[in-house]
Amino acid sequence: MFTILSRIIKYGILGFRRGGWLSAATVAIMVLTLLVFEGLIFFNVLTKIAIESFQDKIDISVYFKAEAPEDDILKIKSSLESLAEVKKVEYISRDKALEIFQAKHEKDQTISEALDELKDNPLLASLNIKAYNSSDYAAINNYLSADSFKKSVEKISYAQNSLVIERLTKIISTAKKAGVFLTILFAAVAVLITFNTIRLAIYSYREEIGIMRLVGASNSFIQGPYIFEGIIYGLIAGVLSFIIALPLIYYTAPYIRVLIPEMSLWFYLLSNIFTLLFYQIIFGIVLGAVSSVIAIRKYLRV
């Protein structure tokens, strides 16, 4: 068993070395495929972070009447927190609202003077609500519009922002769908191209495969070296594509940051370098080996 395995490995390496330009061309195609694969990983990370950052910017606020007791507000807060759709609820009391307002308009003398003129705090207490999904805001709005809350609730900001929220929700859901679709499409194209390249490489060996059968080699002994060669293609292409991707990501990262400030592509790469390299190599190896297995089967029936 060990003897057979070592021979398979030996012939796999020899085949790769002697394949010359054919090996080089196959590796080159696989490098491109794996770059697409890596691009898809980054695309998905970017979409996820972009969507999260969008979603984080959406919230609704519910303002309470000036006479509404704080206890009632806090009860509504805890009832909101028990909803599955709600991620976070922040209570801003009238005093706190005033504090924030003053801090925000510190330099605006007119506003500061106007506030001083008023004896009473003109601002209302509010709850700031963030949902897990932007599509959940309509449901939260309905919940808050119930009659039982009418006596305390002054207004809900959803009515003013619903158009924007709905639009953003649509954009986010379209972006998610487009991401999945593009990932599947590009992955399929890349896999098919690689498979065809390996199929062509093996097609050029079809006579050899027939000869090996005539000499009395078993199918596994014939297949083995080609599969191992496929693994070598995948391994080399995996490492090469990763090396090529490094400068590409380094130089595009600042541009991405302009679009999505939360995202540092380079930092993401550095903090996941081994996982990414591992995926890249594993994907390459599996792609190379599986393509070889499928491509060679046809020629083994001599």
Binding site: R7, G15, E208, M212, R213, V215, G216, S218, F221
Partner: peptide
């Protein structure tokens, strides 16, 4: 086929293998 040796008009050697490797291949197989 290990009990039968075959030679052909067109030789049918493995072109990517040396003479030694071509002969050794039958034993390795």
């Amino acid at each position: 086929r290990r009990h039968i040796g075959v030679i052909f008009q067109d030789f049918r050697l493995l072109v990517n293998k040396t003479a030694y490797e071509n002969v050794a291949f039958a034993l390795e197989a």
